[in-house]
Design a protein around this nucleic acid. Structure first.
Lengths: 156, 156
DNA sequence: CAGGATCCCTAAGGATACTG
DNA sequence: CAGTATCCTTAGGGATCCTG
């Protein structure tokens, strides 16, 4: 599995490292509804009504989670106006929101392979090939489980 | 964003597709404790005591989530015996568990970049380069948000 | 060390009704 | 359409005590 390097070798001496980013991410966005709202945003949904109906939750739940997503910076409220209607807001992805795609699609892929047996496939529209979520290094190698390590950098 | 192709173009006509794998994955494994237990498993933790202590939860919570992970097939109980001690079980990753790595490390990466500002970095031990979680197609292209689509395959 | 049992608390959601 | 307000239920988790 993941190997801990240098000062990290002793898993119990991690106090200097601080709270884990996984924990912070889960505390902020770790509910089923939140993941499904992000899925919808990736599918192109922007209107409140479409969000709660497609995700299958009540308006109250959708409103609460959408506000959290806006506060966390993954979605942005943008005003729009339909002819003859009053001004409303729609929810659009920010860069931080788009950056969340690997999380959502990694869950999709795991579920598809190990529980769901779904017929849906992620696709690269550019070339038509199937797409997957993978761990890869800056040199371009795909990183298998036993070659993945954790390192502590200094400064920022 | 993600573009829906062919019969999927109308997001509201998805009844044939069935329940989303993301939803199933979150229903099964969507708690903070579960994610942190998987993080520990990736770090190499196998003993019950280490799990609950390092994740920072009570033994009751750890036992409940670990059992779920075993039932879901991500961890496996394996008997071991220390000299002079009774037989106990340790928890080791299965293939399905290793397959869950992109989910956990994608969360890690998002949190590190957008909330935590952590000094930890994923590393490819083979070459020493930094590793990230990315979406890539079978032809080897990295897939940007606006080139990711969803397709419905037939049969299995 | 590896749990199971009990009691209490909190966050997330469902249902339903109401407003601009 | 886009929410807000209220009431209720449930799952996850903390604390504490007990057992093999």
């Amino acid at each position: 599995m993941t190997v801990l390097q240098g000062p990290l070798a002793d898993r119990d001496a991690w106090s200097a490292v601080g709270q884990c980013p996984i924990e912070k991410t889960m505390s902020l966005l770790g509910t089923k509804t939140t993941m499904l709202l992000m899925r919808e945003a990736f599918y192109g949904t922007t209107r409140f009504e479409d969000f709660w109906r497609r995700v299958g939750v009540t308006k109250a739940a959708a409103a609460a989670r959408l506000s959290e997503l806006v506060d966390a910076g993954l979605l942005e409220r943008r005003p729009y106006q339909e002819p003859g209607q009053r001004r409303r807001d729609e929810y659009v992805l920010t860069d931080a929101g788009r950056d969340f795609m690997p999380v959502v699609w990694a869950m999709f892929e795991w579920g598809r392979r190990h529980v769901d047996d779904s017929r849906l496939r992620l696709t690269h529209l550019g070339c038509g090939e199937e797409a997957t979520v993978e761990i890869r290094c800056a040199a371009g190698h795909e990183v298998p489980a036993d070659e993945l390590g954790m390192r502590l950098v200094r400064g920022r």
